[in-house]
Nucleic acid binder design. Sequence first.
DNA 1: GAGTTAAGGTCAATGGTGTTGGCATAAAGG
DNA 2: CCTTTATGCCAACACCATTGACCTTAACTC
Lengths: 240, 240
Amino acid sequence: MAKRVVPEAERRRRRPTKGGAVLSERTIVETALRMLHEHGREGLTARRLGTALGADPSTLYRYFRGMDELTLAIGDELIGRALRGWEPSGEWLADLREVGLRIYRAYLAHPEAAVLTANRVSGRANEIAGDEAILGVLRSTGLPDPEVVRIYQAFVDQALAFAALDAASLALPEAARADDEAVWRSTYARLPAETHPHIAATAKLLVARMNDSAYPTALEMLLGSAAAAVRDGRGGGTGG
Amino acid sequence: MAKRVVPEAERRRRRPTKGGAVLSERTIVETALRMLHEHGREGLTARRLGTALGADPSTLYRYFRGMDELTLAIGDELIGRALRGWEPSGEWLADLREVGLRIYRAYLAHPEAAVLTANRVSGRANEIAGDEAILGVLRSTGLPDPEVVRIYQAFVDQALAFAALDAASLALPEAARADDEAVWRSTYARLPAETHPHIAATAKLLVARMNDSAYPTALEMLLGSAAAAVRDGRGGGTGG
DNA sequence: GAGTTAAGGTCAATGGTGTTGGCATAAAGG
DNA sequence: CCTTTATGCCAACACCATTGACCTTAACTC
């Protein structure tokens, strides 16, 4: 069995599980998100998710082809949450900034899920809607489509890349997270100036900055470059 | 057992395994890298790695506290390879560009390993050496240390973030990779202009661009911004 | 309402995983 | 050569995703 998965839209018979719950993609994805939050990235397993839903693990395979497809659905939910309630204002620069920050924030709100999904392409509804919206904002600038696509790619990749990187630190299993953070104080901060002058000289500043994200800076740089391209009517300089 | 792991430097007795191989961190990490290449991210397991080394899986625990510590060692090896043979030229801008590209290339050469390690902090030798080198290049500009650290963080995070994101696509299990890529042709390229005008208008451009990385562009933007800061003697504009 | 169909549950089993405790052996030091 | 013990091996544990076979009952038809 477990070959064909019925698309959510065509589901007709919803039998309650032994635990009494009525399942749907929504309930499963939401429970999965909650479990990721509570038990960490490794804590999301078919068994545990089944138990949390009051259902047998194998039931999940009636809704998703496997854990990988569930992962894609979780990612799509993240994108959906990022843009839920958002409307373009017509100010393309402000809109782009808002979308970038929304994506970044939505992912960081669920770091474990972000790590799992930031690099995937699902082709699901929210993902498509988001891409359509971003392309719409960029095309409203009047830039030629090749330029639009170039900026689109840099914009989206940057948002996802930084979200994934920053989320990864937050999503580490507690032990590993503590270890990694301790490295800064136990190793870097103690390197002698004789052998590592530059680290020794900046150690305090490094430690102080480690918890801040570089994304806002990077985003402004990208937006600045895009604005320059719009002003030129075309060319996309480096801004330097 | 498997509580205390003897540091590589203090190892004295090296008993050959049943397969005749003599183990060391080096041989283990190199074999692990090779296995990641051949069998994919999921293909690196203690059992398989043991077999490849001609040793029992549990033997690995004499060298690393667990698979996580092995992961950190793999990451450090990647950094080591990135900067092996590199010497600063004294031209800080060119040096920074070279280091960024070297890191990016070294990670992409081992995408499966990159995904596993790009977001970790190991405090191991190669990582420390790399940080010391980058800080040295930045401090040679004469910028004040807070500014140096600000740029350092953006530079390193950007390189790692893009490396991780781009590596992730390459490192997907073949099935998932094919699926994700197919989405562009099967889903995005077929959306009707009535419902998704912007995607429909740019679909061809999008598909054509999907395999190019946005990192080179992003790197130049960052370098341009850093150069502006150096010219000003301090301030770090957005470049817009 | 009764009968039929099959969606959508459950159960049990398979072959994988990381990790650990106990034991064996041979390398190094005297 | 003898002792010590680092470093290897073996067997076992608890967990994992996934699947095939089975069963129950919701929903549709008459």
